[in-house]
Amino acid sequence: MYKFSLSILLIFVSHTISLADFPIKDSEKGENLRYIIHYGIIRGGKASLKVRIENIDGQDLYHATLTGKTVGLFNTLYKVKDTYESFISPETLLPVKAIRDIREGNYKRYTEIVFDREKNEVNSTRSGIHKVPEGIHDILSAFYFARANHFNSNLKVGQVVKIQTHFSDELFLLQFRFMGYETINSKIGDIKCYKFIPIVATGRAFKDEDDMTIWVSADANRIPVRVQFDLFIGSLRCDLTNFSDFSYDSIIDND
Rank of each mutant, 00 (worst) to 15 (best):
D208F: 11
A205D: 00
R222Y: 00
N185K: 14
L240P: 10
V225N: 08
T241A: 12
D208S: 14
A201M: 09
I223K: 12
V227L: 12
D208Q: 09
R177Y: 04
K195N: 01
S217F: 01
H166K: 08
G189W: 00
V225W: 10
T213G: 08
M179Y: 12
K156H: 00
C238H: 02
L173C: 07
V161F: 14
V225C: 05
H166L: 04
S168G: 05
T183H: 08
I191P: 05
D245M: 12
K195H: 14
D208M: 14
I191D: 08
K156C: 04
V200R: 04
V216T: 08
L236Q: 11
P224K: 06
V225A: 12
F176K: 03
Q164P: 10
T202I: 11
F196V: 12
K162E: 15
Y248K: 13
F196P: 11
A205K: 02
D245P: 01
S153H: 14
G180E: 04
T165P: 06
R226L: 15
T241C: 14
Y248G: 05
C193W: 00
R237T: 15
V160I: 05
I188P: 06
G180M: 03
C193V: 03
D219G: 09
K195I: 05
D211G: 08
V200C: 09
F246L: 15
D210K: 15
R226A: 08
N221T: 11
I197R: 10
G234R: 10
L173Q: 14
S153C: 09
S244N: 12
F196H: 11
I197P: 08
M179D: 04
V216Y: 05
A201N: 12
I191S: 03
M179K: 06
T202H: 08
N154G: 13
A218N: 10
L173T: 15
D230E: 10
I184N: 04
D245T: 03
Q159G: 01
E170N: 13
V160L: 00
L174N: 05
V225T: 05
R222F: 00
Y194I: 00
D211K: 00
D230H: 14
W215K: 06
E182C: 12
S244M: 05
H166N: 09
F178D: 08
L155F: 01
G203F: 06
Q228R: 11
K187V: 09
L236G: 02
R222P: 06
F176G: 08
D190C: 03
Q228M: 07
C193H: 11
R237D: 10
I191G: 12
A220S: 15
N154Y: 04
N154F: 11
D239P: 02
T241F: 14
Q159W: 00
S247M: 12
D245W: 04
K195W: 14
A205Q: 09
N242Q: 06
I233C: 03
F232S: 01
L155D: 00
H166W: 13
R226P: 03
R226E: 07
K187E: 13
S244F: 02
P224Q: 06
L155Y: 06
V157K: 06
T213V: 13
S186A: 03
P198T: 07
L231P: 07
R177N: 04
L173W: 15
F178L: 10
F176Q: 13
L173I: 13
I188A: 02
T165I: 13
S247F: 05
F172P: 02
